[in-house]
């Protein structure tokens, strides 16, 4: 490891201060609340009491896993075909992927209500052509759809950026050595794109598992996710800060564990884009 020069330390200083104030300090505050009771005395009761949120944890993880798998299945081919296009088309597609992100996330989610509602676009169309309306809104499917829609750019972008950097000469070499299209994809492109995939999975899974707005708007407030439970507790005043912090801490530990497991799949520092 190279020794950092004084100059580069100075340049890094603002960010380090920023991270300390807005990342480290809040984490310490959260841990403090999670491990104390209302009077500030040390306790493990908050952590012991999270058993009743089992279902919310399970549902959150299940939805997030499903949403992540769907996003991956959609995003991977998309990123692959993007790299095959002309540079100008790549830019165009990139713009289209990014475009929805210029809009606020809350509005993007809210707009799905008008599409999925019982009196929404899809059902109005169905009844116009004489078909039975479908129950779309307020279902687990709607919540997962919301997650996929909101987070898919975070899957496409890292995969695309890793894939587009794959050295063309490697593919040529594979072809010279007799690998057909399928084998090249399977044995060359996929292993080399893995860091992008891992990074994409992280960037979709983490916000999905901790989300609270999507489930409230598209799930009719009936499918409570762990994020909703935390939000509800915090909104009920300081009495609940301890329990809510404990839940947040457990959620964070679960996320860290799943990230650690994922990191086992990627080859250490190669690519180095994890998280």
């Amino acid at each position: 490891m190279k020794k950092k020069s004084f100059g580069s330390r100075i340049i890094a200083a603002p960010y380090i201060v920023w991270a300390a104030i807005f990342v480290i300090v809040p984490l310490i505050i959260m841990a403090y609340f999670a491990l104390t009771d209302a009077n500030g005395a040390f306790t493990l009761a908050n952590l012991a009491g999270i058993g009743k949120y089992k279902k919310a944890f399970a549902v959150s993880i299940l939805y997030a896993v499903i949403a992540t798998i769907i996003t991956l299945l959609l995003a991977y081919p998309m990123a692959y075909f993007m790299t095959k296009m002309k540079i100008s088309s790549q830019r165009m597609i990139m713009l289209i992927v990014m475009l929805p992100m210029w809009m606020n996330f809350l509005i993007r989610t809210y707009s799905w209500i008008t599409i999925l509602a019982n009196t929404g676009l899809i059902n109005t169309f169905l009844s116009k052509i004489g078909l039975k309306p479908l129950q779309l809104i307020n279902t687990p499917g709607a919540v997962i759809l919301g997650m996929v829609y909101d987070f898919i750019p975070y899957m496409i972008l890292p995969i695309y950026s890793v894939m587009s950097k794959i050295d063309k000469s490697l593919l040529e070499a594979a072809e010279d050595l007799g690998a057909n299209g399928k084998a090249r994809l399977h044995r060359v492109i996929f292993p080399l794109s893995l860091p992008g995939v891992i990074s994409g999975i992280t960037m979709v899974f983490v916000p999905s598992v901790s989300t609270f707005y999507i489930s409230q708007k598209l799930g009719g407030n009936k499918n409570l996710l762990i994020g909703d439970a935390i939000e509800f507790l915090f909104n009920n005043g300081p009495d609940y800060y301890n329990v809510a912090s404990a839940l947040s801490m457990v959620l964070m530990v679960l996320i860290l564990i799943s990230l650690a497991v994922m990191n086992r799949f990627s080859d250490g520092d190669e690519g180095g884009v994890v998280i």
Binding site: L224, A229, N236, D239
Partner: peptide, 12 residues
């Protein structure tokens, strides 16, 4: 806090 917990139970 009893009924707030119950409400959470209802939601869960």
């Amino acid at each position: 806090s009893y009924y707030e917990q119950l409400w959470l139970d209802v939601k869960l």
